[in-house]
Write a protein that binds this DNA or RNA. Structure first.
Lengths: 300, 300
DNA sequence: ATTGTGCTTTTAATGATAAAAATCACCGCT
DNA sequence: AGCGGTGATTTTTATCATTAAAAGCACAAT
């Protein structure tokens, strides 16, 4: 077969919902209006109209379209469980790779993966291609894909790259003019750190999100699409690993809060070099945590 | 139809070439040996063998395969002009985008582009997806692709990103131990600069390649797959723009050689800060050149 | 002039299909 | 038994025809 008619079915059902709100024998809006309202092309609207006319729900002659009878529940078209979207696919794929510790060098099987993730093979192909630049995946010369895998090497290089980007961001941050809105954000995030620190015993789990916000803030002062793109990969991977390594979690998080605070204090004092040094320390810790988490997971 | 049989045809012709070197009635090697020699799977070898047997060129019963008659020229299978490879596609695509100055926001037409570049639609899809991270291209929500375009913004951000990476590389370079092989490479590249400078009047065109080698050398000391990946994009784009902006080319190149030499002198003196400063100057010039080249091209 | 509809053309997502690779099963020889 | 080979079968992936959806065109009605 070809394209799914999911769009048609959804539009059809939405149209039923709309018709139900209308009084009997009411005149209907134009095709273009419906098209924009439902977010589909006019072709789909026309197909829906025709179906509805055939089912005796409305009558159409030219532009004089009218409601004939109220739609019933059995008029709805069932829609098969749809394919998952791109973001969902990304999440599931990374989860699979990282959680099951797929060995480096594994040849990926498109068909099998496509079934596993419930996507058409094409979508998977495209997804893998888009992952190409992240260095996790490689195209085999004679077709097929190979998972390069999330190795220790990879983690080291990722951390170093992260360090390059983030130290640069810290330097830029320290040089911001006093009236830049980022300073207000920084004060807010600092308070959140202090707040979390006061109740760390109980809520140490909340650190992961705060960590994400902190690094996002630091990097936000560098307006650069390439940096932003990589930041996505980086935060994704670090985020995933934080989820597992539960050893010493409370301790690690408390220490990390301290390191964050030192960076922020130095920044607020406009002391660039001190901020850079503090950031360097923090990133080193972060790298160590990532590596040890990998070692632990690998032995498991 | 399905997969092309290009592989089969190529293997077939290669096999003919091989058979021609053999004496009459000679016994042939095993299928596996041919498979590895021709770089294809055994299935293809068998298909070729069968065809050759059907054409009366060889006789096969079990493992006793023998040459029956020498192959003639008309036994060769014609192979239709094959699809172009990935690198070729990349080159052509960038050439198209940059040279024809395709306006930002243009919706790309897969089918048309596939015809234009002589690739199957699928290959193009995959290529566009792989370009996703480069920020030149965007997936439209309801299918299709949009060219974000090579705008001034893009050039600025690319240059800044390049600066972050390359300054980091320069710092690493200055800190290398004295016995690192990169120092020898540096001396060689420096001599090449001096050499080109002495004959700049005539050979100023040769600078583009030397420039590429210089920056590649600087970045080679950072062993990082992410850096390497981006370096590819960066050098590609800068390379393309160098090709057009012919204004003042001789002057620009001479000046650039001087800037390169200053960086190298500082490096050889192990003066990190001086090298960084020189690199900063050079990258600023480079950025200006790129921007002005774009302005010139845009008005044309 | 604007808004709407009927009809046609174009485009891209999907599944079927065939080529190629990988795997299995078995044989003959040492 | 173990190695090197062939025959047959089973995946697996690149390509293409097909169809839903979008875009475009011409004209009618207000």
């Amino acid at each position: 077969m070809a394209r799914t008619d999911t769009r048609f079915r959804q539009a059809h059902n939405q149209m039923l919902d709309h018709l139900r709100t209308l009084p009997h024998d009411a005149p209907l809006a134009s095709e273009v209006q419906f098209a924009t309202r439902l977010g589909v092309s006019r072709t789909v609207v026309r197909a829906v109209m025709q179906k509805l006319a055939a089912d005796g729900i409305l009558r159409q002659d030219g532009r004089g379209k009218r409601l004939v009878r109220a739609p019933r529940d059995k008029d709805r078209l069932p829609l098969r469980d749809d394919y998952i979207g791109r973001d969902e696919l990304e999440a599931r794929f990374l989860d699979w790779v990282l959680r099951f510790d797929v060995p480096a060098g594994t040849a990926l099987n498109i068909t099998q993966l496509a079934r596993q993730f419930n996507v058409p093979t094409h979508a998977l192909q495209e997804f893998l291609a888009s992952l190409g630049q992240s260095g996790l995946i490689e195209r085999r010369p004679r077709g097929g894909w190979r998972l390069l895998g999330f190795t220790a090497d990879y983690a080291v290089e990722l951390s170093e790259f992260r360090q390059v980007l983030e130290l640069n961001a810290v330097r830029s941050f320290a040089a911001l003019p006093a009236d830049h809105p980022a300073w207000a954000d920084l004060a807010r995030v600092r308070d959140e750190h202090l707040d979390l620190l006061s109740r760390i015993e109980r809520d140490y789990h909340d650190f992961s999100r705060l960590d994400g916000r902190f690094h996002a803030l630091i990097n936000s002062v560098v307006q650069n699409r390439f940096v932003a793109e990589f930041q996505k990969v980086i935060s994704l991977i670090f985020h995933y690993h934080y989820q597992w390594d539960k050893t010493m979690e409370r301790f690690r998080n408390e220490a990390a809060i301290g390191e964050h605070l030192r960076i922020m204090t130095a920044l607020e004092a406009r002391d660039g070099p001190a901020a850079e040094a503090a950031a360097r320390t923090h990133l080193a810790t972060s790298k160590e945590t990532l590596l040890s988490s990998m070692r632990g997971h690998h032995l498991a």
